[in-house]
Amino acid sequence: MINENEMKLEFLSKSNNEAFARITVAAFVASLDPTIEEISDIKTAVSEAVTNAIVHGYEDKLGLINLRCKIQDRKILIEISDNGKGIENIEMAKQPLYTSKPNLERSGMGFTIMESFMDELKVESVLGLGTKVTMSKVIKETQKNDEVTLEEALRG
């Protein structure tokens, strides 16, 4: 029998929900016994996508962000979507160092981090309607001596 699980979360585009979202996902994947590095990679990728929805999608206006997670066997799928302003040129947006807000000390590394910390990244966007980011990662089955407990996952 294959291991399956699913969860859905909807929250307001407030910046203190960045930590809430990544900690929730970390707790959700804890059942797959990820390493500290795997959990940290996933948390960072979630934080990037949620922050983008808040600062670019809604540009600090209030809106709803949807987060869906699925576990399929040893794979975690994460989908983060907003109904914000959308991305005009996705290829350009994904380039390392590209940012539309350089004056605010943004580095333009968000998509590059998501891409390299996760196995797969897909970005869909319609101008004026919103953006959906889908990412996945396979949690390796290894002999672990640095296993994260739920407590540790929730801490950081």
Binding site: A19, E48, T51, S107, M109, G110, I113, R155, G156
Partner: peptide, 14 residues
């Protein structure tokens, strides 16, 4: 620091 994302890059360069 138990967690840092890309916000840390801009902060440090600034």
């Amino acid at each position: 620091v138990s967690f840092m994302d890309s916000a840390g890059i801009g902060m440090v360069i600034g």
